[in-house]
């Protein structure tokens, strides 16, 4: 018997026996523990995010450049085709900036939902062979979506300067809660959807359809004021209230407020329109943002509890 063996035995004897989870997994057990475990795995998380980004453009010659090419092309299309040729810019000044801002924040949301839903299934090979907290996979999807968002946001900033807007004023602060709302709800949904998709493969198709539908439920390509000023869904109607219940709508509007300076009512061209300027943004945007963040955090907690409950059977179901 070697010394190493004796040392190992002593070291092991000093450690407590760890009981592995059994049964379907409790709902209220150990959020703190899970978070600590996840924090310990942050390096793995970084590796997974990098892998996901790489995977997106794998085997392509231009690779990461595609992340830039796509949004720039989009920006140009919206500027020329929609703005100049189809004339959307007559109702909405700086239409290109407006729509690009909306698409940037919406794109973050859509990106999180579609990529995270598949994340557990795509990592089946790993999940079946090694133990690790399975949250890392949907979280890596969220992380890579956030990085892509940052790149697109950079393009947006450049575009704002090119189009002659100074990109900093007090309203710029709205960008922060806007991104927070999308990130919180996106992460919560990422956990729920990725776990459900293991048991029911239809979820991934359902998500695709929902993303298309939800796109029109937020003022991404049309201006918020055209909703607020309309007869059917204008201020005061129940449809308007329903419309504002969608946290992503709140986030999109706040993001536009932070990046699209022409929406602030100073522009004379807007004043000519029959819709009052106060309809550019919902009246209680700040309060709604705070509520969205608080509700989002509660939802995130529930989503994580659901995830830990479902993850016990991942390895045998995929």
């Amino acid at each position: 018997m070697t010394d190493i063996a004796r040392q190992r035995a002593e070291r092991l004897a000093a450690q407590p026996l760890i009981t592995l989870a059994s049964g379907p997994g409790g709902f209220f057990r150990g959020t703190i523990n899970d978070l600590r475990e996840l924090w310990k795995r942050r390096e793995l998380q970084g590796i997974l995010v990098r892998r996901e980004l790489k995977n997106r453009y794998k085997d392509s010659a231009l690779g990461f450049l595609w992340t830039l090419i796509k949004p720039i092309t989009m920006l140009l299309v919206y500027y020329f085709a929609l703005g100049q040729i189809l004339g959307a810019s007559r109702n909405t000044p700086e239409y290109a900036i407006f729509v690009f801002a909306g698409l940037t924040i919406w794109g973050l949301y859509a990106d999180i939902l579609t990529s995270s839903t598949m994340s557990i299934l795509q990592n089946a090979a790993l999940i079946k062979k090694v133990y690790m907290p399975r949250e890392v996979f949907p979280l890596a999807s969220v992380g890579s979506a956030l990085l892509n968002f940052c790149i697109q946001f950079g393009v947006l900033l450049v575009a704002m300067i090119v189009f002659g807007q100074v990109p900093v004023n007090w309203d710029s602060l709205y960008i922060i809660p806007a991104v927070l709302v999308v990130a919180i709800f996106g992460t919560a949904l990422a956990l729920v959807l990725s776990a459900l998709n293991v048991y029911l493969r239809d979820v991934q198709y359902l998500v695709d359809v929902m993303v298309v539908l939800l796109f029109w439920a937020s003022p991404v390509v049309y201006a918020f004021r055209s909703v607020a000023g309309s007869d059917a869904a204008g201020v005061g109607t129940w449809l308007y209230q329903l419309y504002l219940l969608n946290p992503i709508t709140i986030a999109v509007v706040a993001f536009q407020r932070g990046t699209w300076l022409h929406g602030h009512g100073v522009e004379t061209s807007l004043a000519k329109s029959h819709i009052p300027l106060s309809h550019n943004y919902p009246a209680d945007l700040d309060l709604r943002l705070i509520i969205a963040i608080v509700v989002g955090l509660v939802f995130l907690w529930f989503a994580h509890r659901l995830f830990t409950r479902l993850q016990g059977n991942f390895a045998q179901e995929i």
Partner: peptide, 16 residues
């Protein structure tokens, strides 16, 4: 034993 599959009932403990 590896913690990859969760047992239905019973206890499993491990260290190291």
């Amino acid at each position: 034993i590896g913690g990859i599959i969760r047992p239905t009932t019973g206890v499993i403990q491990r260290r190291g």
